[in-house]
Each structure stands twice: as C-alpha cells, then as structure tokens.
C-alpha cells in the first residue's frame, strides 16, 4: 500500500484547532503529515516543537506519522548562514520560499535545502527561469505547490491556476510535490481529489498520483541524508539502537580472538578428511 503525504499543514497558535485539522487529515486518508513553522525575516529561530498528541485509535496511531517542517522566507537581504544550524537540523524538512529572482537563484544553486516552495496565491513578482530550475533538479532539490489558497478564495484561485500551469509546463512535472498549506480543516481535500485537481493544473495522471505518494517519500529520504549523515554516505548510531533481528551482523563481524577457537576450527576441518580415507579403505 502506498502512503499519502501532506507535507504542509500550517502551525496555528490555537492548539485545539491544530489538533482538529490533523485529525481531519488522518480521517481523509493521509498517513504522513508535516506541520510547518514559517520563519520570516527577523523572527527568532527555535528548535522543532514535539509532535502534537492526538487522541487517535490504536490502528490510526500506528499508521499516522507526524513530522515537523520549517519554511524560511528568503529575500535579498537575509543572511543564509544559519541554514546549517543545529536548530534547523532538528526539523525533519527544510524548505525555502524565495521572494525575489536573486533569492530564487541562490536557493536553486547554492543553498543546501530539500524543498523550494512559492506563494502562488499572488503574482510571484519574478519569472521562474528554466536555467535555475534545471540546476535545482540536477542537485536533487524538490519543488512544491499548494492547493489550499485555490479552495479558500476565488480571487486566489486564478493566480494559483496561472502560476501552477506555467510552473508545471516548465518543469514537466518532475520532482514536484503537492500539499495543502491548510490553516483550517476546510482547506483540506482527500488525496484522490487532490490528484484530480493536479490534472487540472496540467499534470499527467501518473505524475499527479506520484506527487502525493512516491515523490514526497523520496524527499523525506533526501532530508534524512542532509540531517543525519556525513556527506550523504555515513551514518553513526549507537549499538543499542539496532533491532534484535539485525544483531547477528555485529556478532558476525567480530574478529576471532582466542586460540582455543582456532584449534577447534582446525580439528573440524581434519575430521571429514579422515572419514573420507576410511571410506576408501573399506571399498
């Protein structure tokens, strides 16, 4: 079974409303959900808050996964040096939202981020140049668009359609994820309905479904390599964190240290030879 992802649900101050939104998302069939904190210029950076406790049933709790995400709003003046910070690494996904052409170029080429997102509910203010998009794709970065504003407001809808169709044509639907950007539960829609909407935005049917299932999964794996690995190749973990069934790998890799063990091994090798010789004599 494929898991449906919604990697952008806005963090709201009202805890009860937040719980309700997440519960509705679970009910609609989403299994992986990320709660987004938006960091604008001048805001104080804090570590990732713990996942919100939802009173779900046992089965729902097993299937439902809650992640944290930070979206940094980029402008020309922002200092990007803190993006490798430990506090930023505490979030599961790091996304940037460029507001100018220069910041879009920087986000596509220089910054080590997982996801580039845009505010499609208004006019962007710059053109998404093919050259920058291609460099971002080559570096394995992902793009996102949100359908929430299109449902919320009819004036926003026109801008969302205009921007997303243009965006999908440019990129041919590669490395794109679709998320809700929901502040209220009414902005959410069921996964298959969202796939239908994506066809309206100009995506093909297969792309529309994979932008909710396999592409976000690949994005999460990429984010994990950024956070937890040394140059995307080595991870370091404690021995106790290894599950029971995989412990034989560590025991098997221990070098044989005692002499007694060696002797036993040599005896074992000799025995079959003797047996063979006995057999020959009997014949």
């Amino acid at each position: 079974m494929v898991k449906f992802h919604d990697l952008n649900i806005a963090r709201v101050k009202d805890a009860v409303a937040q719980k309700h939104t997440l519960r509705i998302a679970c009910r609609l069939g989403y299994e992986v959900v990320a709660v987004t904190t938006v960091l604008k210029n001048g805001d104080e950076l804090t570590a990732a808050p713990p996942p919100i406790e939802l009173q779900l049933t046992k089965e729902e709790q097993q299937n439902f996964q809650q992640l944290s995400r930070i979206t940094v709003v980029l402008s020309d003046k922002t200092n990007n040096s803190y993006l490798g910070n430990d506090k930023i690494k505490s979030y599961d996904i790091l996304a940037v939202q460029p507001t100018t052409e220069k910041s879009f170029q920087v986000a596509c080429s220089e910054l080590n981020v997982d996801l580039i997102t845009f505010d499609f509910s208004t006019w962007l203010g710059f053109h998404l140049k093919h050259q920058y998009v291609q460099t971002a794709l080559r570096l394995g970065k992902y793009f996102e668009f949100t359908y929430g504003p299109a449902i919320r407001d009819t004036t926003c809808r026109r801008y969302v359609f205009q921007n997303t169709t243009d965006f999908v044509q440019r990129k041919e639907g590669q490395n794109t994820i679709i998320s809700s950007g929901a502040e209220w539960p009414t902005d959410l829609r069921a996964p298959y309905d969202v796939a239908n909407l994506a066809i309206l935005f100009g995506m093909k049917e297969g792309q529309a479904k994979s932008s909710l299932t396999s592409t976000p999964r690949a994005l999460l794996l990429k984010a994990a390599t950024r956070r937890l690995t040394v140059k995307s190749s080595i991870t370091i973990g404690h021995v106790t964190s290894i599950p029971e069934k995989d412990k034989w790998k560590i025991e098997g890799s221990k070098p044989p240290s005692t002499d007694a063990g060696k002797r036993q091994n040599t005896d074992d090798h000799d025995e079959p030879k003797k047996k063979k010789s006995k057999k020959l004599k009997s014949n």
Partner: peptide, 20 residues
C-alpha cells in the same frame, strides 16, 4: 465533475469537505 467536487465548500451554510 471530478474536478468540480473539491471546490464545493458549503452545504446549507456549513463548511464541508467532499471526498470521492
């Protein structure tokens, strides 16, 4: 119709979500 159903927001002045 499949693309229209997600845009339905209200039923009898209460907010709704329609799932196909």
């Amino acid at each position: 119709l499949s693309q229209l159903l997600p845009f339905i927001k209200q039923h009898q002045k209460t907010d709704v979500i329609i799932q196909t």
